[in-house]
């Protein structure tokens, strides 16, 4: 049986580790497609880059949720 402190640390680690998988894959896809588009037409890279960053930030948000939950588990409960 785990005591509360070790359960909290374990939960935060699992939460962050699993939560980081999805955004990593998603951001990889976004970056890959953006690079592909830039490679096909280098002239539009100025327009693609900000859009890519915004799309990445939105992909990242699920990772950020799990981070916030991990932080709440660690510090606030």
């Amino acid at each position: 049986m785990l005591d509360l402190a070790s359960a909290k640390v374990l939960a935060a680690g699992i939460c962050m580790g699993l939560g980081a998988i999805g955004p990593a894959i998603g951001e990889g896809f976004v970056a890959a497609k953006a690079m592909e588009a830039i490679g096909r037409n280098p002239a539009v890279s100025d327009k693609i880059l900000p859009n890519m960053i915004v799309a990445m930030a939105i992909c990242e948000s699920t990772g950020i949720y799990s981070l916030v939950i991990a932080l709440i588990i660690l510090f606030a409960i």
């Binding site: 948000s61 950020i64 981070l67 932080l71």
Partner: peptide
């Protein structure tokens, strides 16, 4: 929530 947590999470995570 997502707008607030995105900014907070990134900056606080950097600090931590």
């Amino acid at each position: 929530i997502s707008l607030a947590c995105r900014l907070f999470g990134n900056i606080f995570a950097g600090e931590v």
